[in-house]
Design a protein around this nucleic acid. Sequence first.
DNA 1: TCGGCTCATAAGCTGGGGTTATGAGCGAGT
DNA 2: ACTCGCTCATAACCCCAGCTTATGAGCCGA
Lengths: 312, 312
Amino acid sequence: MSEYEAGGVPEPSVARRVPDLAALELLLAVARLGSLGRAAKAVGVSQPAASARIRSMERQLGVALVHRSPAGSRLTEAGGVVTEWARRVVEAAEAFDAGAQALRARRDSRLRVAASLTVAEYLLPGWLVALRAARPETAVSLQAGNSAAVAAQVRAGSADLGFVEGPDVPAGLDGAVIGHDRLLVVVAPSHTWARRSGMPPAEVAGAALVLREQGSGTRQVLDEALVPHGGLGAPLLELASTTAVKSAAVTGAGPAVLSELAVADELAARRLVAVPVAGLDLTRALRAVWPRGQRPSGPARDLLALTRGAGP
Amino acid sequence: MSEYEAGGVPEPSVARRVPDLAALELLLAVARLGSLGRAAKAVGVSQPAASARIRSMERQLGVALVHRSPAGSRLTEAGGVVTEWARRVVEAAEAFDAGAQALRARRDSRLRVAASLTVAEYLLPGWLVALRAARPETAVSLQAGNSAAVAAQVRAGSADLGFVEGPDVPAGLDGAVIGHDRLLVVVAPSHTWARRSGMPPAEVAGAALVLREQGSGTRQVLDEALVPHGGLGAPLLELASTTAVKSAAVTGAGPAVLSELAVADELAARRLVAVPVAGLDLTRALRAVWPRGQRPSGPARDLLALTRGAGP
DNA sequence: TCGGCTCATAAGCTGGGGTTATGAGCGAGT
DNA sequence: ACTCGCTCATAACCCCAGCTTATGAGCCGA
């Protein structure tokens, strides 16, 4: 739906209906500390400001969130639920922040990481949050690029640790498989395929699919995997970004093929359904890589320890 | 860490470092539409405002996000990665919004749902987002409460569909198991137990744990399950909210016992580690319930269809 | 060369959200 | 019983982030 809003009526944005990040953080602080005043101090504003902010949030949501009393403030039942939802938003923001800081920090960081887009987009932020919790002093810099560029950077010594996807360890590097990325055939729940269990690969190959453009990593994997099954047919749509493919699939444009990492949320929320395809292997390894012979140590080792079992 | 900020120095909030939700939405629109002007229209602001907003976002993050050209605007490499991170934040906000709207909407909605806290906090928002995508016209109202209250509401006809946890279907209602909620013993990765694989239940029972207070649902389940293993020992901490227990565990206060739904994020990001306990069954069913004999139809049926396989 | 798209710049307004200062409940301790 | 210390509320004021409209300047294709 949101795909088609370009010329149409601007759909009232969520931002209008969801409180500020600062307000959500304040709410979490109130939940934790049991008092507006202390929460105010914790987030660095005056007590009246905190009180007003919570009140305007209650007005905006149309629900009482806290019981205010001279003895302190407790969450209402609805407040507790809302707080939990708020926590999810704030956590996503923290991941964003961790990633953004790494992106900004160029050289001179204690740990310089180069990562493929898949890893950078879907896995790294979580690791960075965890790393920050475990080793707050570690400053991480991130350089995102395709697997070849990552390998080059690690080889050149401008990155201490790299993350790549693909079948082989790049030449001149050592590496360890840290997980797998599987491509899935996904459709909107309303699509006919959603009820199929176990499609023949040839039928997938012949169907009109929503895909990334030629040359993208996922497209390559798909092309190769389908060669023994008649090769990939003419695509329905070729889009330039994973996100675009995803929203096309969600809006029911047609079946798409995407990394399971990219669609995990959509699958969980049933916005998309995975269609099992019998005997089609669309798995590729995710690897951490480092200069040959130099086992990661220090910060690189810390980060590596967090990545075990990435991708299901 | 954040647990102790009450009296201390206010830690600079993420909100300061993460752009506005509106800005993130705008970035997504630019990514999707390929032009500042069209993105501006899509989110309902003027083109200069959009341009300025993106620019200030780039300044804030210290990274160029879009290539501006007279032919349109494309994301930079970093911009693509940032956009994906932004998408996560916006999606969490959308879940928040879906939940908040349901909470606000009282009677007269097309679908009145009553849900236990666990379901309301962790599962329902996702379902509501999916429902909104599939059936935008369905207005949902949500009433959160404990399982007894939910049963009462469904029985009284003030809710069309209820979600409860517990071993039995409440009297007078029909129901279907839609998933399971398992309690996990979790510790910070630095804790000694983090390396244990397969603890004896008796050792868990005897240890000083971080727990919810007496009378909470999770506490009850734990108490009962540990009776055959010597009963629950004196807790290390008794806290009033799931969130409080969780942050205590994350900061290393001690082992905690929490629903896997509550700690899924923390486990994924390795902020917490689950400790396997051999032969201890801490699973309880999550059920959808409805008035005896009245199979859900219409909107209730739609929602029910989305809940299959909730909880692993 | 014109028309249509792009983005940039300029000037001015507005209001949300902040501040400080102060008051008013409630409860615990002496 | 009084007072201290916490709670939250109210009032008056201020400021700047972000909006708007109006306009200009590149680039491209017909």
